[in-house]
Design a protein around this nucleic acid. Structure first.
Length: 828
RNA sequence: GCCGGGGUGGCGAAAUUGGCAGACGCGCCAGACUCAAAAUCUGGAGCAGCUUUGGCUGCGUGCGGGUUCAAGUCCCGCCCCCGGCACCA
């Protein structure tokens, strides 16, 4: 009797069939109100598909299949984030070519992905290392170059001695290379930057449109990353001194212009351009030493709060612009040239870090803000950073801090020594990489004409194939003469190519538009095609990309919009950040030896079991702990569903009208439709949707032989199979066919069931009856009974009677369809 | 230190957003089927105490208070865990 189901066979059968039917093909143009573009963060072709990928793609596939069944036009593309370090490392280690290594990984991973039965439109497939793709990186770069949004500057950058490459600050973790973990040192190089700071305000403003569909914590992280501060810039005149030439001023940025009277010293970044001119002759030696020392430190080290702050008086003073007091000027490496103006006024009474610094160097502390209701101790034991009322501030005494900010700034503005100012923490995007396996930056350096952009007609600037990989010295491109030597497009003279390639985040910043027109050889994409689908309706990926990738692509979207290619302001309308897959509490990794191979699970149980387990074990956002027993449990559930369909008889008749069991089944079926639909649509509740399907299955197992012959039973089973389709598509197709249907579920656009409100309304309501908040009895009533009738019956229940006896009812609480509570107190 | 997220049975989790805490599943226990086991089907169980074995009573969502007829959910104050960080000048 126990039939052994060959899930693998069913997987293969339907994957072949779907491919033949073009079941996953997106329409050329979606209907405007029916478009659904579901995007997953495309994989790096490492050669291995891990469980995190499977989870990501399964979540997306559920949504996509559900949307298709509901009549949407769906775009579900797949491609490869194919440039990057591992290919180059493999080249160094094994002598392979990065190109061959990458493309063979892609071929392997494509096969594994196809085995998952995810419904991708493979016609969209792109690989970012393909010249047909990266030429458009170059094209976009040139557009930005012409607008001044791509520029070159000498800057202190993070240098990884092992990778021999520059890392953006964002890519340096705890002073170590994010990929190879080597300690980072500082080095000055001329680098290419994208001026993302020009879009800082727009990136922030865009949050108002994203609030609907993005997790609030991602928006909070981005907001902090962009880091807008409102305040004032104020010019401090340097006090005349024998060694000071002219009348220099130091511009500072402060968020607290209200505390200006409390500024008792200034601190400049050691790199500040005025430092050499202001340093007194007898301080020169120690200042130079300090600068050398701070250059050795990484930004990370300088930013480490646990380390004691060091500083050095440079032998010059400034004049506080509001009261003319002479205040000493220090340099300290915790002040960074990259934020604000690289100089601060220090107000120890109202900034804890300044307070600590003042204590260490014995500098005066002047309280200028008092809290409204208390008085601060004198001397202060810690800084008072909160708001309050101004004191010791001359004409501003008595003002609130907020009012004082306005008034002091306005007065400074009148005197032309200050103004309102806004700064951002966001820094320009350093895109230069001294690597081979990336997009060449399309720039030529001509001894006569200078920096010359490669003409568009000469794109793509191709990566040369024959390149040496030693892992040492300059980038392989810089060592390849045939690449470097060229002629100037302007004067025709001998010239050199830029040998830096682009950060791979450039590739992933606009790939979602290329999917929509992947073969276009005239433009990155056709605006008509792209705008028909964009913005992406659902983007799914890991939260680790909250700040970099997800800000960079928002920036690029706005760039492409301003180029006239896109009409929308934001690339991704809705974002789902999925949790990690763990085993034994930590993320699966080869080094920990806790990897579960997707291929092994699929080989043993079939794809649907793997999908169902992943979807059921935790909600998508939460961490997912792998459980081999849980997987087996899910396999048993699918077998249990299969056996249900064996119980249906060929010809189903409407059941006896008065059969309460069938009545209950009918109600349960419609309740399940309502629940599953709601759970999918509302917050990706796939785990509870599957739980609802399990409950329906449990009810069906309670049917007797004659009930199995009923139309109600058939309806319930067919409905179950339809609703199973997004979660376990292979098996659902097989069962659908087994039930006698010829048109596959994958081709349907109207088969998702609808709950019948009339049937739902027939369901009885069970009320808990509470007395003083404790449940004492239960009452089942028809839903159309009035409140008064329900309460009457509740009071008449025997157990309720027991607890109401001798009591006065003070209050009757009735919450429709929820509960009844009698608040009582003893009679006298 | 700052920012973000979280703490519910033996385990993964659920709770329609203030309304019966623990749905659904894993694991466990028991029964049916079987010579037996597996598979399958059926049933049981938060913890503790009492019990005339029908049940009854208390306690329970990290800890301590509070608001409310009613708190996992709201408020105040703590503790712990996870993730992120670029000294918000």
């Amino acid at each position: 009797m126990a039939e052994v189901i060959d899930f693998k066979d069913i997987d293969r059968k339907w994957q072949t069939r779907w491919e033949k039917d073009n079941a996953s093909h997106a329409p050329d143009r979606p209907r405007p109100d029916k478009a659904y573009y579901c995007l997953v963060m495309f994989p790096y072709p490492s050669g291995h598909l891990h469980m995190g990928h499977v989870r990501n793609y399964t979540i997306a596939d559920v949504l996509v299949r559900y949307k298709r069944m509901n009549g949407h036009d769906v775009m579900h593309p797949m491609g490869w984030d194919a440039f990057g370090l591992p290919a180059e490392n493999a080249a160094i280690k094994h002598g392979t070519s990065p190109k061959d290594w990458t493309y063979s990984n892609i071929a392997h991973m494509r096969e594994m992905l196809k085995g998952l039965g995810i419904s991708y439109d493979w016609r969209t497939e792109i690989a970012t290392c393909d010249p047909d793709y990266y030429r458009w990186n170059q094209w976009i770069f040139l557009k930005m170059f012409r607008k001044g949004l791509a520029y070159r500057k000498e800057a202190a950058v993070n240098w990884c001695p092992s990778c021999q490459t520059v890392l953006a600050n964002e890519q340096a973790q705890d002073g170590h290379c994010w990929r190879c973990d080597s300690e980072i040192t500082q080095k000055n190089l001329a680098q290419w930057f994208f001026k993302i700071t020009a879009y800082a305000q727009q990136l922030l403003d865009g949050h108002s449109t994203l609030e609907q569909g993005w997790p609030p914590e991602v928006l909070a992280m981005q907001k902090n990353w962009i880091g807008r501060s409102e305040g004032a810039e104020v010019d401090f005149a340097v006090a005349p001194d024998a060694h000071v030439q002219g009348t220099p001023t130091i511009r500072i940025f402060t968020t607290r212009p209200d505390t200006l009277f409390g500024a008792t010293f200034m601190v400049l970044s050691p790199e500040h351009p005025l430092v050499p001119a202001l340093t007194a002759p007898d301080k020169k030696k120690s200042v130079d030493d300090y600068i050398v020392l701070s250059k050795k430190k990484t930004t990370q080290e300088r930013a480490d709060l646990s380390k004691e702050k060091s500083g050095l008086f440079i032998g010059a003073h400034a004049l506080n612009p509001v009261n003319g007091k002479r205040i000493p000027i220090f340099i300290a490496d915790y002040v960074l040239m990259s934020y604000g103006t690289g100089a601060i006024m220090a107000v120890p009474a109202h900034d804890q870090r300044d307070f600590d610094f003042a204590k260490k160097y014995d500098l005066p502390v002047i309280t200028v803000i008092q809290p409204p209701e208390a008085r601060l101790p004198d001397p202060l034991t810690e800084a008072h950073e909160a708001d309050g009322i101004l004191v010791n501030s001359g004409p501003y005494d008595g003002l609130t801090a907020d009012a004082a900010k306005e008034k002091i700034t306005a007065d400074l503005e009148r005197r032309k020594i200050g103004s309102k100012a806004i700064t951002f923490k966001l820094r320009d995007w350093l895109l230069s990489r001294q690597r081979y396996w990336g997009t060449p930056i399309p720039i030529i350096y001509c001894p006569t004409c200078g920096t010359v952009p490669v003409p568009e007609k000469d794109l793509p600037v191709r990566l040369p194939d024959s390149v040496q990989f030693t892992g040492k010295g300059e980038s392989p491109l810089a060592q390849t003469d045939s690449f470097v030597q060229t002629v100037c497009p302007t004067c025709g003279g001998k010239a050199r190519r830029e040998t830096d390639t682009m950060d791979t985040f450039v590739d992933s910043s606009w790939y979602y538009t290329r999917y929509l027109d992947p073969k276009n050889s005239d433009r990155p994409f056709d605006p008509g095609k792209a705008n028909a689908w964009l913005p992406v309706h659902q983007y799914i990926g890991g939260i680790e990309h909250a700040c970099m990738h997800l800000i960079y692509s928002r920036f690029f979207h706005k760039i492409l919009r301003d180029e006239g290619l896109l009409t929308s302001d934001e690339p991704f309308a809705n974002l789902l950040t999925q949790g990690m897959v763990t085993l034994g509490g930590s993320a699966m990794s080869k080094s920990k030896g806790n990897v579960v191979e997707p291929s092994e699970v699929i080989e043993r149980f079939g794809v649907d079991t793997c999908r169902m387990f992943i979807l059921f074990a935790a909600p998508p956002r939460a961490q997912l702990e792998w459980s081999p027993q849980g997987v087996e449990g899910m396999w048993r559930f699918l077998n249990r569903v299969w056996r249900l369909t064996d119980k249906l008889s060929g010809s189903s008749q409407p059941g006896a009208a008065a059969d309460p069991g069938l009545n209950e089944l009918q109600i349960k079926t419609h309740q399940t439709i309502a629940r599953v639909s709601r759970d999918i649509e509302k917050d990706f509740g796939f785990n509870t949707a599957i739980a609802a399907l399990m409950e329906l299955v449990n009810v069906l197992y309670g049917l007797n032989e004659s009930q199995w012959k009923s139309a109600e039973a058939r309806f319930a089973v067919e409905t179950l199979v339809k609703m199973l389709f997004p979660f376990a598509p292979h098996m659902a197709e097989e069962l659908w066919e087994k039930l006698g249907n010829t048109r596959p579920l994958s081709l349907s656009s109207d088969l998702w069931p609808k709950a019948d409100a009339a049937v739902l309304g027939k369901s009885e309501v069970e009320y808990p009856i509470q007395v003083n908040g404790k449940v004492r009895d239960h009452l089942r009533v028809s839903p159309d009974l009035s409140q008064a009738e329900v309460l009457e019956r509740a009071k008449a229940q025997p157990r309720a009677q027991e607890f109401l006896k001798g009591q006065t009812i003070v209050k009757e609480i009735f919450v429709p369809k929820r509960l009844i509570n009698f608040v009582v107190k003893p009679k006298n």
